[in-house]
């Protein structure tokens, strides 16, 4: 059987959606409450990493293929840069040209919210890819090492 035991799999299926939603909340409310793009992105990546640990990497890649993760990774960083560029219309790099809105409303503080979303995509997908890459190594080489250690 691939992955971990039935108990882990069932609980994982149950909580993964909640983790993603919580991560999205942290991203979207990052400019109002503690949190932000990085923290939210890490939480979302953790959901996928949990899937990968419980069900094996194929299950995780079925939901978020490596190619899509690569695209999101580059696109997130690029979006961050482009938002910075929009500020150049006001004469300064990363100038907050969007309306600042009303305090403690979701659509406020100008470009911080789009920047948070861009970071979340970047961080979430790249953390997932880092973990996937290290897991791929593990399959190749660490099994031999572990067997050697045990014997």
């Amino acid at each position: 059987m691939k992955g971990m035991t039935l108990i882990v799999k069932t609980i994982t299926d149950f909580v993964v959606a909640f983790i993603v939603v919580f991560g999205a909340y942290i991203v979207l409310y990052g400019h109002l409450t503690p949190g932000g793009g990085f923290a939210g992105g890490v939480i979302i990546a953790c959901a996928f990493i949990l899937l990968m640990l419980a069900h094996g990497s194929d299950a995780a890649f079925a939901i978020l293929p490596a190619k899509v993760a690569h695209i999101l990774d580059s696109a997130g960083a690029l979006a961050f840069l482009i938002i910075g560029w929009i500020g150049m219309t006001g004469g300064f790099f990363f100038l907050n040209v969007f309306g600042r809105g009303e305090m403690f409303r979701l659509l406020s503080s100008g470009m911080i919210l789009p920047l948070n979303i861009a970071i979340a995509f970047k961080v979430g997908s790249s953390l997932f890819l880092v973990f996937a890459a290290l897991a791929m190594f593990r399959r190749r080489s660490f099994r031999a090492m572990i067997e050697e250690e045990l014997s």
Partner: peptide
């Protein structure tokens, strides 16, 4: 510190992958 931790994470990931390659 937040920035430094993030940088440290990147360095750590690269180091670990290099160590795995060295082990191979």
């Amino acid at each position: 510190v937040l920035t430094s931790i993030v940088i440290g994470l990147g360095v750590l990931a690269l180091m670990v992958s290099m160590v795995i390659r060295l082990y191979e």
